[in-house]
């Protein structure tokens, strides 16, 4: 019997021409050329890249085109793109520039039928439902789905929304804990358990990774992939180090 295996994904939040990183999706700091980071992570053996145009949904556009075009010329791994994608035409545009999948949050919350449209038109493997989850203050066993970089709340329960997204045709779920995001103090394992046990789709979990041990805990809680940002961008650990720690924790990851 094969053991649990996870994918290690580098999340690159982009604002304009720069890689940026915040804490709990606020206070963005510029870190440099996203392509340089992408190339370095590819060389080090990252399994997948996730680009999010972090201001796109506020201004209703996606600026990643040029960055994406340069990335796919030399990086031969799956690339998922999100941020401000509103309709089929927006999706078609980023796929034509070399993206393999799209992550959609705000537009899906506003019109859930977009999930079905994207899945029907481009295949469900292409449709990643992005969910920004914030733990409820009044009911700590529940989470609410947020949008616009964790600023606006949708009123939707995260677990119910994940189930609905799966039924509408999503092929994967990108689950980000807004509470833990950027802190590098571990992931919201309760959230990971709640969502991964509720849906049969692969779930990429993000928010709070500070060490390889956090990845092991996420995998054991049910994550199929883990999105890492600060831990890599601030060079706290390399991709190789994280993967080695994952293996030492008894979880498989690509060599």
């Amino acid at each position: 019997m094969e053991g649990k295996k996870i994918r290690l994904i580098a999340r690159l939040d982009v604002k304009g021409e720069n890689l940026v990183k915040g804490i709990q999706m606020e206070g963005l700091r510029k870190l440099g050329d996203p392509n340089a980071f992408a190339r370095e992570y590819y060389r080090a053996g990252i399994d997948e890249l996730l680009y999010i145009d972090i201001v796109a949904s506020l201004y209703n556009r996606n600026n990643l085109g040029e960055i994406l075009r340069r990335t796919v010329e030399e990086v031969y791994i799956p690339v998922c793109v999100g941020g401000g994608l509103r309709n089929l035409e927006d999706v078609r545009r980023v796929l034509a520039l070399g993206a393999d999948k799209v992550a959609i949050n705000t537009a899906a919350l506003k019109d859930p039928s977009l999930i079905t449209q994207v899945a029907r038109t481009f295949g469900s493997q292409c449709m990643v439902l992005s969910i920004q989850a914030k733990r409820s203050r009044t009911d700590p066993g529940r989470w609410e789905a947020y949008y616009d970089c964790g600023r606006a709340h949708s009123g939707r329960d995260v677990v119910e929304w994940a189930k609905e997204g799966a039924a509408l045709g999503a092929g994967e779920i990108l689950l980000t804990s807004v509470d833990n995001e950027g802190l590098r103090r571990g992931m919201d394992l309760d959230l990971i358990r709640a969502v991964t046990s509720a849906v049969d789709l692969p779930v990429i979990c993000g928010g709070g990774v500070g060490s390889g041990e956090d990845l092991v805990q996420a995998a054991l809680a049910g994550a199929d992939g883990v999105a890492c940002a600060s831990v890599l961008h601030y060079k706290q650990e390399t991709v190789e180090q994280l993967k080695e720690e994952v293996r030492q924790g008894g979880v498989e990851v690509r060599r």
């Binding site: 994918r7 092929g171 789709l201």
Partner: peptide
């Protein structure tokens, strides 16, 4: 689909 092995199968 089997317990612990989700579909779509997305993995290296």
């Amino acid at each position: 689909p089997r317990p612990g092995f989700k579909v779509p199968h997305i993995q290296w």
